[in-house]
């Protein structure tokens, strides 16, 4: 009788893990995919860093249509990207440790 319970427990754990994986928001991946397509070393546009501007400045930048070309990014994707950028922007919480030079 123990084996079915074990299987059930294992199934529940796997289900929770799968749900968590699916639900995880991945603004970073979206940022790298959509923005990084052009903003990269040797790319069509210069390299950018979310910490280049404060979070609200990034929001204003796109709301005012200041990006020089149409990004073609869907609204929902743009929201994910802006959430990621804002959470890593100049005024966001920053890590503190002795610097490691590149």
């Amino acid at each position: 009788m123990k084996r079915p319970y074990r299987r059930l427990s294992a199934g529940i754990v796997l289900g929770i893990l799968a749900a968590a994986t699916t639900a995880a928001a991945d603004g970073q991946a979206m940022f790298l995919e959509k923005c990084g397509a052009c903003h990269k070393s040797g790319g069509k546009a210069s390299v950018i860093n979310p910490a280049d501007k404060a979070g609200q400045v990034w929001v204003n930048y796109f709301a005012r249509g200041r990006h020089p070309v149409d990004t073609g990014i869907a609204e929902a994707d743009m929201k994910q990207i802006l959430d990621f950028i804002s959470s890593h922007a100049a005024d966001s919480d920053q890590p503190a440790a002795a610097v490691i030079p590149k």
Binding site: D93, P95, A96, A97
Partner: peptide, 21 residues
Amino acid sequence: RHPSSEGPPNEIKENRKRQST
């Protein structure tokens, strides 16, 4: 005076970014 307190993995419980070397 160093960033030598509240280091990894404290940031998980403190709900913030890394705070120490």
